[in-house]
Structure formats: structure tokens, C-alpha cells
Nucleic acid binder design. Structure first.
Length: 274
DNA sequence: CTCCAGGCGGATC
DNA sequence: GATCCGCATGGA
């Protein structure tokens, strides 16, 4: 797999560890859609189109540097998969989800998206985020940009009713206000995982699981293993002892160490879709 | 009708 | 600390 970058596209030849569907459908990113023959992905108000050909993928965008990092193209996923296979025997999951990559997403968007995700399902999460952008965001071309913390903090309660986020609406408002008022979310890049988790959990609507998803999908902290209803099933399939999700997560991180986030993503995707 | 979805906050012990 | 419970919404 070799990658070339030009002013308006990224070309991936022989893309053996890049699969658009597996990346986008693995529950880490919610703002995309499939249009006839290609995916459209929106992040930070920037857009790219993913075209898959016989032995080549083209990412069409005016911001190739942004999306090069977004799709984590500097990381060698063959090496990760080989280790997960040879040391941990994850052949089935890594084969099924081959082409998954852990994205590097915007921290604020990821915080809001995963507050919405709690006790919710993916089609509905996508719908709420779509309405959030339409109601609060500003229009850029034919799309709506993801709203800023200020835009969300300065909106009335009846606008929050329109997005139909249920009881999560007040979490969104409280968190947007806190960040708009100076709560610095960029310093998490400088923190280790445990301190970053504690820091993020100061925000309303963020517990252990949501914090771990944000640490993984925005800050690329890979020593986390988020436990949701699906990865809980993975644990219970192997060990039929009913411990807390916190204990399950700690068990998996102790096992997979810095590959925990990757292992979790393959196992989640396999368990949920198989 | 009930059950479930990438769980969290609050009350209680 | 750990555990139990209520919770908006919409699809199965």
C-alpha cells in the first residue's frame, strides 16, 4: 500500500489496510453518507469524497493535509494486525474488519458526538447529529458546519427541542457552555490517558465509556478499551463472570496494552455485524 | 406490548 | 468507593 498526496486528492494504491465502509461503519464517525458510488465525509466543516476503484482509493478534497491525518495514514496497520493475530489470536476479527483505521477527529465534535451516543443506537445518533448541525451550525456551500461551542451555548431551549436528543440535551448545553467559557480541551493531547479521562469526565454527560471513546477517536490514546453493550458481550462470551464494565475495561487494557484501542475496534465491529 | 441501543447522573449504602 | 435506578427517543 503506497500513498501519494497532491493539492486536491490523496491516492492510495493497493489499499490492503484501508476500507472506507469498515472505517465509517465501525461506530467512530457519524457524519457521512453514501451517494451512488462514493462516500462523502464531513469533519470540521471540511469535506472529502472517497472513491474506491479496482486496486486504488482516491480521497478527493481541497484539504489533503487535514484528511491525511484524519485517516491516520502514517500508521502501519499491517504491523498492528500482525501483532494482534500472532500474540492474541484475533484472526477472525482482524480479518473481518480488515481496513478499519482509528480516525484522528476534532476533539470538540467527538465530545459532542459521544455524549449523544450514550444509551442510543447508531442510526438515531446520526440523525441527532444531522439535526444539531442544521439547527445550530452555519451553512457552508450545501452543507452545515458542525456548530461551535459558542453557537451551542447561545441557543435557546426550544432550539434544543428540535434536535430530539432527549435527556442528553442538557448535557450538550452544559458541556458547550463550559467549553465556550474557557475549559481547555486541547491540553488533553499533552496528558496521559488516566489524567485525560479524569479531565474529560468533568464535563456533563461524559462517564468512563464516553471518555474512552473521545480519548481514542480524537486524541488517539490507544491504551483504552471502551466497554459498551457489544464489547461487554465479547467479554462475557469468553469469561462468564459478571463484573462491572470498569473491571472489564481494565482487564482488556492490561491484556492488549497500547494496542487496546485497535483490538477493541476490531472486536466491536466483528461482534456487532457478524 | 416489551426490549434494546457505542451509558450517565444522582441517590444510597 | 460500588450498586441500583430513572431516563428521551425510535426501531424491532
Amino acid at each position: 500500500m503506497d500513498i501519494t498526496k497532491t493539492l486536491n486528492k490523496i491516492i492510495i494504491n493497493r489499499p490492503n489496510t484501508f476500507n472506507s465502509k469498515h472505517i465509517l461503519d465501525s461506530g467512530q464517525m457519524f457524519r457521512y453518507n453514501f451517494d451512488k458510488d462514493h462516500y462523502e465525509v464531513i469533519s470540521k466543516g471540511l469535506i472529502c469524497e472517497l472513491y474506491t476503484y479496482e486496486d486504488r482509493i482516491e480521497i478527493i478534497t481541497t484539504e489533503p493535509n487535514y484528511f491525511y491525518n484524519f485517516f491516520d495514514l502514517d500508521t502501519d496497520y499491517n504491523e498492528i494486525i500482525n501483532t494482534l493475530n500472532n500474540e492474541y489470536g484475533l484472526f477472525m476479527a482482524t480479518d473481518y474488519g480488515k481496513g478499519i483505521r482509528i480516525l484522528n477527529q476534532d476533539p470538540y465534535e467527538t465530545i459532542i458526538n459521544f455524549i449523544i451516543s450514550s444509551n442510543n443506537n447508531i442510526p438515531r445518533i446520526k440523525g441527532i447529529i444531522d439535526r444539531l448541525c442544521r439547527v445550530f451550525g452555519s451553512k457552508v456551500n450545501k452543507y452545515y458546519a458542525f456548530p461551535t461551542p459558542e453557537e451551542m451555548a447561545n441557543s435557546s431551549e426550544d432550539k434544543y427541542d428540535l434536535i430530539k436528543a432527549g435527556y442528553r440535551a442538557k448535557y450538550l448545553y452544559n458541556t458547550a457552555c463550559k467549553i465556550a467559557n474557557g475549559f481547555d480541551i486541547d491540553i488533553v493531547y499533552q496528558m496521559d490517558t488516566d489524567n485525560g479521562r479524569k479531565y474529560l469526565m468533568q464535563l456533563d454527560g461524559i462517564g468512563n465509556k464516553v471518555a474512552d471513546c473521545i480519548l481514542l477517536f480524537a486524541y488517539h490514546k490507544t491504551d483504552v478499551f471502551p466497554i459498551d453493550t457489544w464489547t461487554e458481550k465479547v467479554y462475557l462470551d469468553e469469561y462468564n463472570n459478571h463484573v462491572s464494565r470498569k473491571i472489564m475495561s481494565e482487564y482488556f487494557v492490561n491484556k492488549y496494552k497500547m494496542l487496546s484501542g485497535y483490538a477493541q475496534q476490531y472486536l466491536y465491529y466483528y461482534k456487532r455485524n457478524r
